[in-house]
């Protein structure tokens, strides 16, 4: 009896210690957001660790918002937009691609692993891709551990 109780207690401690990544996902209204929505409608499981923010275009996500997400406690940031050629605003996603490349260079030099920032192209019909990416990214961040920023 005693030993059984102990294991339950230990399990509770373990669960507490288990790190749940906090991920902010900026998803484009026209594709990735609809893809995530379709995943829900089709009863496909996707990672609950991703807090989705809908934006009108992945190109609308200002780099400052990504930095701010990290500052406020995100362990990872996912940006998902339309495949090249599919952008509702023609070229927004090309700009996104360049931005994320440059921002990754900057993050790395800030001493922050650039893998904490992930860019994916997910169309409105790719519910499965969204579901897969959401779990993949969550597990990747889980492995990396929490982002602890030193300010002093």
């Amino acid at each position: 009896m005693e030993t059984q109780e102990k294991t339950i207690e230990q399990k509770a401690v373990q669960a507490k210690e288990k790190f749940e990544p906090r991920i902010v996902g900026f998803l484009c209204n026209w594709c990735a957001y609809s893809g995530a929505d379709l995943a829900g409608v089709s009863r496909l499981q996707s990672s609950p660790n991703i807090r989705i923010i809908r934006t009108m275009c992945s190109g609308r996500v200002d780099p400052a918002m990504i930095l701010r997400a990290f500052e406020l406690g995100a362990d990872g940031v996912l940006i998902a937009g339309c495949h090249f050629g599919d952008c509702h605003y023609l070229e927004g996603n090309f700009k996104t691609m360049r931005r994320i490349e440059l921002l990754k260079m900057v993050l790395k030099r800030f001493g922050i692993d650039e893998k904490r920032l992930r860019l994916e192209w997910i169309s409105a019909s790719e519910a499965e891709k969204y579901a897969r990416v959401s779990f993949e990214f969550t597990e990747q961040i889980r492995e990396m551990g929490p982002l602890q920023l030193q300010t002093n």
Partner: peptide, 15 residues
């Protein structure tokens, strides 16, 4: 004055 204020000095793999 930037968002991160400084370069993270890499205490472990945390960052």
């Amino acid at each position: 004055r930037s968002t991160f204020r400084r370069v993270q000095m890499g205490n472990g793999k945390n960052s």
